[in-house]
Nucleic acid binder design. Structure first.
Lengths: 205, 205
DNA sequence: GAAAAATATTGAATGGCCTCATTTTTGAAG
DNA sequence: CTTCAAAAATGAGGCCATTCAATATTTTTC
């Protein structure tokens, strides 16, 4: 039988996630009421809260998917980065930015970020922060890789500069999701300009 | 007569702000209900909304005060910075961090940041973003000043690096307000470590 | 297979931000 | 001092995320 209860549970979970993602993308996060999501998923409001602690937790699944995908794409670049520092950073960062709106809308990103900041003692926030940390480490890993290949001054503190580069790209990403008119290409160019001078100093010779 | 109406208006406005700040600081932003604030200010809930558009707008007044104070203190440092790049940055950043909890609690900061991100098309967000921009410019101004005094390589792109340094200190400030256990001194030290390697590269000779 | 226990579902009720139709107060004009 | 229009105050009501006591379904036990 494989457990009727377990099957129903998995099924409802999926229906809720599908309904939520669909509504978030079409009518928007704020406009999608729990009641609507529950109705599309053919479940009661109360049942929704047996599956998720808060409305925001529905975002978490999508954010996680998006960031995991981005991290995986980033791995490929860290493994075989362009030789030039500026180009390597641009490749990694561009990969982050270009993948950022596959599943999430800007409104969803804004909500997720706001939740992560506003309620730090929350599973949501802890998970979001953890994903952020993995991205930060990936940037540091890229610098270390370049250093290992002799494309970056040996005396560079890759952790310090990696953190700074990551925090900068992350803050610029916040500006990006705050501005509906800004495209990923715009963002990439702005950050490229900021990284340029630093990359120049980091290069060998 | 000087206008009874105008006097009453100013008076109620002040009472509302005082009541809100007091409650935010004592019971917390979330726990302070509009009804409570209105009651302390001896005003009805409806009247509150004649004076402020949202609960969050009560934060804006305090955030503005805090940031304006910080900007002024920062001016003094930009005007007469320590000779060493690292020390100059540490002085300015320390000034920001040390002043940051005079009027606002970490919870209030978190709420303000969350609101600024979540609803960018809001007077609140626009104002918050503008204050951020002025801080960013001040960091850039410090670099330019140091460069003018010959304490920083002439070929440095002060805008690019200033933005990056600011975005880093701002993101670290977000981590700070997310973590109740972190002190301003902790934060200052962490950012000092991040800035150190960069400062070393920026120094003359 | 019936009864009991465990596990889930349900939707009406709660709490808190914000709105708005109504009432009250102020100030100007006659 | 009335009268009246403009400006402001009021609080009941709407909305929506979340909770919880009652009900229903699945699983286990005998």
């Amino acid at each position: 039988m494989a457990g009727l209860r377990a099957r129903q549970k998995a099924d409802r979970n999926r229906r809720l996630l599908d309904a939520a993602l669909h509504l978030f993308q079409t009518v928007g996060y704020d406009a999608a009421r729990i009641e609507d999501i529950a109705e599309v998923a053919e479940v009661s409001v109360g049942t929704f809260y047996n599956y998720f602690q808060t409305k925001g937790d529905l975002l978490l699944a999508t954010v996680t998917m998006e960031v995991e995908a981005v991290l995986e794409a980033g791995e490929a670049i860290v493994a075989a980065p362009p030789a030039d520092v500026a180009q390597a950073l641009d490749a990694l960062i561009g990969c982050y930015y270009d993948h950022s709106l596959v599943w999430l809308t800007k409104e969803m990103w804004r909500t997720a970020m706001a939740l992560a900041i506003q309620a730090p003692d929350t599973p949501f926030s802890r998970r979001y922060t953890e994903l952020d940390g993995r991205l930060r480490q990936q940037v540091c890993a890229l610098l270390l890789r370049l250093q290992g290949k002799g494309q970056l001054r040996a005396d560079t503190d890759c952790t310090a500069l990696g953190e700074m580069i990551f925090n900068n790209l992350n803050m610029m990403f916040i500006e990006f999701v705050k501005d509906d008119a800004m495209t990923p290409a715009d963002l990439r160019q702005l950050v490229g300009r900021q990284n340029g001078p630093l990359a120049a100093m980091l290069r060998m010779g």
